[in-house]
Design a protein around this nucleic acid. Sequence first.
RNA 1: GUCCCCUUCGUCUAAAGGUUAGGACACCACUCUUUCAAGGUGGAGAUACGGGUUCAAUUCCCGUAGGGGACGCCA
Length: 504
Amino acid sequence: MAWFRPASRSASSVPPCVRLCYTLARPAQRLNRQESPMTVVTRFAPSPTGYLHIGGARTALFNWLFSRHHQGRFLLRIEDTDRERSTEDAVRAIIEGLRWLGLDWDGEPVFQFARASRHADVARDLLAKGRAYHCYCTPEELAEMRERARAEGRSPKYDGRWRDRDPKEAPPGAKPVIRFKAPQSGETVVEDLVQGRVAVANAELDDMVLLRADGTPTYMLSVVVDDHDMAITHAIRGDDHLTNAFRQTQLFLACGWQPPRYAHIPLIHGADGAKLSKRHGAVALGDYAHLGLLSEAMRNYLLRLGWSHGDDEIIPTAKAIEWFNLESIGRSPARFDMEKLLSLNAHYIREAAGDVLRPPVAALIEKSLARALTTEEGIQLDRLLPALKPRARTLIELANGAAFLFRPRPLPLDAGATKQLGPDGKAALRAFAERLSTCSDWSAATLEQATRAEAEAKGLKLGAIAQPLRAALTGSSVSPPIFDVMAALGREATLGRITDVTRT
RNA sequence: GUCCCCUUCGUCUAAAGGUUAGGACACCACUCUUUCAAGGUGGAGAUACGGGUUCAAUUCCCGUAGGGGACGCCA
């Protein structure tokens, strides 16, 4: 098909009327036309029909990293052309998810449906140029067509019955759709930046619907027009769009436009190797934020799922921007591994400064306490945070680990703690309390010194005092180093908690 | 069913013709130690299978098997 080949691969071959007539979702939004053709422009184009899931988040991350690496632009386009299923809640979830992940987009988000009339214009233009046609098939007729094809072992495609038929034969009153007149011979090639050269015989593809009977554009039309109008240079998206890329390429060429470079990244699978779905547990990005993950850890994990830089595992965002490239994206699907995500999160918690961790942890504690922390309690938390960090994989674990600090006296004791506070334990504590009350310097080092001196004086192993002490101070047999606990608690709270258990 | 893609330790991956096939998570042991972690040291663990090409295949080609994706007036 001669017309199927682009006359020119440059965007300037687009007729001026086409270039000028697009409409914008927001008047303030500048489409990228006037910028240098070398500027990288990527986009994340989710449909607001549900939460932002982990796979979409990675797609967004890759697009963001690629544009930031090239000092280009990263645009957000909400593909809300499915009026039935698009919701404002989903739009909000997507935006909140991206914000949490730290992926900032340039300009205002583009709402695709707001551009519907522009899309329809392109469809009618194609119709006028003979590259699209009216199809009067009913949905029932199409379903039957597919069923028969499947039964006969053929591909369930539209058979093109209205492609060359005279519209005069149209059933009276029927509202037609506009279908693309796709090339029927030859092949369509996508030079994919991840998958390499992928080709399909045009005979395999059918004539897709561009404009629905109600005059609204379909996804296939909208992406092409928007990717063109937004001057997208690189479309990085899930592997599930690979076959769409053939159709979209055909459409681009029919419009006389240059398609963006495509990069189809493999999907993320669940631990069982199947497509990630709700039955795999948390798949919404928001779920992970609520689990107490740091977004830096999430970015690092998502990046390593399918992309690599030698043996590097710990890749902070700044490094990721510096190193990111499309060549190092793998071609095979990856399974989601919560354990590894958690271990990465533990790493970033350990590395995080106290004042980064304190606000979210304090918020978590205040929520479970149903009250605000006092100034004194805030100081106690700050003092214990360094000792808590290596013991937590999530912010929630961090908050749980600190919870004993704020429990009202007398502390409830768990089974292990009760065991430590037998007659011997209590006796050791009673004696130790006397020495402790004479301690003037309440630092961990001094307290350790005092405790060791006490053990030596009584001929006891350190544990014989430390364990009952831990039980009395934390209500548990497991805690951060006990001298850190004493120092964090402070003199008054420490002596008080000891008295609580030695009184009886 | 048709088309497209994929296949290195359990998992994520490195090695872009010549390596004792490397790292990370998880696992095991030891170590440190006041408990639990963290840390340190060590261990076990992989090129799906079958054919080619080559002096030499994880690497290139073909086939088989397995997995995934697409095939809507959804996106």
